[in-house]
Write a protein that binds this DNA or RNA. Structure first.
Length: 693
DNA sequence: GAGCACTGC
């Protein structure tokens, strides 16, 4: 056992989340630290316990209750139980609690089932994609991702089976959370008996409460009700330890170097305890790890006994496991991480945090229709969250690599909500499917720019999903909305039905939904390229995916086979899972499952979805420069594509990554005549004559 | 010949 774990504390558990990642799950606040105490006692020790009556009173009397609860307050596990005890689940009604992430849903649900001494999946259950652990007759408390709740609204727009819906982690402002909150506000108008609880970790609560404030209805009074339409706000303290904040005195110019020096300073001056460093991305992290470990190996006087490990989502399974292996006696562990350690996973045993003040954030440009990842300053809320990571086991320290003046005067209080930084195509079709006709007039918690909304409407119109009145078309629009994929991929699946290649389209759709089917890694580039060549198809990446999938099935879905061919076995398992879900949905939509082996049909189906991403090779280009048909932007095939350096004259791409150039990832060659064939409206309008050779 | 913050259906 590591010397850094507090004696008597519960040891960390490593959970296999079956998604290719081993994630670290902290033991919940209520179960650690005190030796044996009864579950009831543990529950009563949580900070939220003394607000039990107040919470129940507010929920009884207010349509919406906003609860500000810091980490460790116990709000997530306790409030659903209080509601159940108070009778909110009587008469077959259900109490729902949403989370942004799958793993949190599972963890919280099992904890609550344990506390209530019931079998998970009966009285307490959860639903996440691919996994429904509920019982239609028995489940009274249900945890689910907010994405699943959105899907449920398509079958039951008023969410009639729920008596109370608690939206947790609302401060994170994920796209789904924002949309769910906007829709819940609408549902409240039809269902005055529905109760909402919005749980947030920050003082954004006021804005949240104001959002849910509804005007008093003066004219009709159908139901005599004592419910106040004023939202209530309640604050619950957390149970973290104090974290001392340190700032640099002068702004740093090189935060990578500054982070490394700070780690060495802590190691030199401070008592034992692990260090967590927040940097922005893989490159910086690998560089910092190397600097620290090399100095330690060379016997640097400030680094003896230090060892650094990287943490980011792209790590292989084996590399991830390293992070959780015990720290050797007399050593100090430094974990250098992306934002993944800010919310998605919790490392116990961290006493010191070094915060660079930056993270990579997605920004969407509706004019170019491209999403970029840009290194950007974090918000005060993020900075507090990062600091809090140091105070989980004992009082800690946080070293900020920016000045106090910068923190106080320049750092924005909250980040820009994700919905204002994203492509909205998927969100808009979901809202349309739920009967929200006026997208621009939707009651957004934070409205996206009109340009982004209009761009999304244009894309959906060009796909034939929306008609001239911006209403869902029948059947295509409704079918595309049913499929849980980017509408362009969904359109490819629908087109494949007529082309007789739906089996192939489902496989391609599943592969395009995951990050990558290839193993990642720096030292194995040559081997990886060679492995790719064994499956490479002249038609492009999409057809290559089909070759890989076929060979994987022939191998008997063998992990050994994957290993030999530099294919990520976890990714392939996920492909199987997604494909199975898509197959069921396709059948429900009346799509005949057919395989034709004709790659021309497959490419045509892809073109039906991706015609707006068509590109032509520049006539005299010697360096593989393409121009997009729609906007004449300069783009290049990504070196990871099987068509890199092959450079066919006409292609469609699945996505673009922007670095020093715009690189197209996952491309397939097409015949330009297909463009006018599958999207005559689009190409007649946008590019009257794009086919001049 | 290059590079991938993080989720989710």
């Amino acid at each position: 056992m590591s010397q850094f774990w507090k004696p008597g504390a519960e040891k960390p558990r490593i959970l296999d989340d079956e998604e290719g990642g081993v994630l670290f799950l902290s033991s919940s606040a209520s179960s650690s630290g005190y030796g044996y105490v009864s579950i009831e006692k543990q529950r009563q020790r949580l900070p939220v316990y003394k607000y039990r009556t107040a919470i129940l009173y507010l929920v009884e009397h207010h349509a919406t209750t906003v609860i500000v609860g810091e980490t460790g307050s116990g709000k997530t596990t306790q409030i659903p139980q209080y509601l159940k005890e108070a009778g909110w689940a009587d008469g077959g009604r259900i109490i729902a609690c949403t989370q942004p992430r799958r793993l949190a849903v599972q963890a919280v649900a099992s904890r609550v089932a344990e506390e209530m001494e019931v079998k998970l999946g009966e009285e307490v259950g959860y639903t996440i994609r691919f996994e429904d652990v509920t019982d239609a007759n028995k489940t009274r408390i249900k945890f689910l991702t907010d994405g699943v709740l959105l899907r449920e609204m398509m079958d039951d727009p008023l969410l009639t089976k729920y008596s109370v819906i608690m939206v947790d982690e609302a401060h994170e402002r994920s796209v789904s959370t924002d949309i769910v909150l906007g829709l819940l506000k609408k549902i409240q108008k039809c269902r005055p008996e529905l109760r909402l609880i919005v749980a947030s970790a920050t003082i954004e609560a006021k804005a949240m409460a104001a959002f849910f404030q509804t005007r008093k209805r003066r004219t009709t009074k159908l139901v005599e009700s004592t419910t106040s339409e004023e939202s209530a706000i309640l604050s619950v303290e957390g149970r973290g330890y104090n974290v001392e904040i340190h700032y640099v005195e002068e702004p740093v110019s090189d935060y990578l170097q500054a982070a490394v020096s700070t780690v060495q300073l802590i190691h030199n001056k401070e008592p034992y305890g692990d260090i967590l460093v927040f940097l922005t991305g893989q490159d910086d992290i690998d560089a910092a790890v190397k600097l620290i470990n090399e100095e330690a190996r060379n016997g640097g006087k400030n680094s003896s006994g230090l060892f650094a490990l990287p943490l980011y989502s792209g790590l292989s399974r084996a590399e991830q496991e390293l992070i959780f292996s015990p720290t050797p006696r007399g050593k100090r562990k430094v974990v250098i991480s992306t934002n993944i350690a800010e919310t998605s996973l919790t490392l116990e045993g961290i006493v010191y945090v070094v915060d660079s003040g930056f993270s990579k954030q997605r920004f969407y440009n509706p004019i170019s229709d491209i999403e970029n990842l840009i290194v950007s300053p974090i918000s005060k809320a993020s900075a507090r969250q990062r600091a809090g990571r140091a105070g989980r086991v004992r009082p800690g320290k946080c070293y900020r690599l920016y000045t106090e003046e910068y923190f106080l005067k320049e750092m924005s209080a909250q980040g820009i909500p994700e919905i204002q930084r994203s492509n909205l195509v998927s969100s808009v079709i979901q809202l349309k499917a739920l009967g929200i006709d006026n997208i621009l007039g939707f009651n957004w918690l934070a409205a996206p720019s009109p340009e982004t909304m209009i761009r999304a409407l244009e894309v959906l119109y060009s796909l034939g999903v929306l008609d001239d009145d911006a209403k869902l078309t029948s059947p295509i629009g409704f079918q595309v909305a049913e499929i849980p994929l980017d509408p362009m991929i969904s359109k490819m699946i629908l087109a494949s039905n007529e082309l007789g290649c739906s089996e192939e389209a489902l496989t391609i759709a599943a592969v395009l939904s995951i990050q990558s089917i290839w193993v990642s890694g720096k030292g194995i580039q040559k081997e990886l390229d060679e492995a790719k060549l064994r499956f490479a198809a002249a038609e492009g990446d999409h057809v290559t995916f089909l070759n890989v999938y076929k060979a994987f099935l022939q191998s008997g879905k063998s992990s050994q086979w994957c290993y030999k061919n530099y294919i990520n076995y976890q990714s392939m398992k996920k492909v199987l899972e997604i494909r199975e879900q898509l197959r069921r949905i396709a059948q429900r939509l009346g799509i005949a499952l057919k395989s034709c082996g004709d790659m021309q049909a497959v490419r045509k189906a892809a073109t039906s979805g991706y015609f707006s991403n068509a590109c032509q090779l520049e006539a005299y280009s010697h360096n593989g420069m393409y121009k997009t048909v729609r906007t004449s932007q300069e783009v290049y095939i990504h070196p990871s594509s099987v068509l890199f350096r092959v450079n066919p004259k006409w292609i469609v791409y699945h996505s673009i990554v922007s670095t020093d150039r715009q690189y197209m990832r996952n491309v397939v060659s097409i015949d330009p005549s297909w463009l006018t064939e599958v999207a005559p409206h689009f190409y007649r309008q946008q590019a009257p004559n794009p086919f001049i050779h």
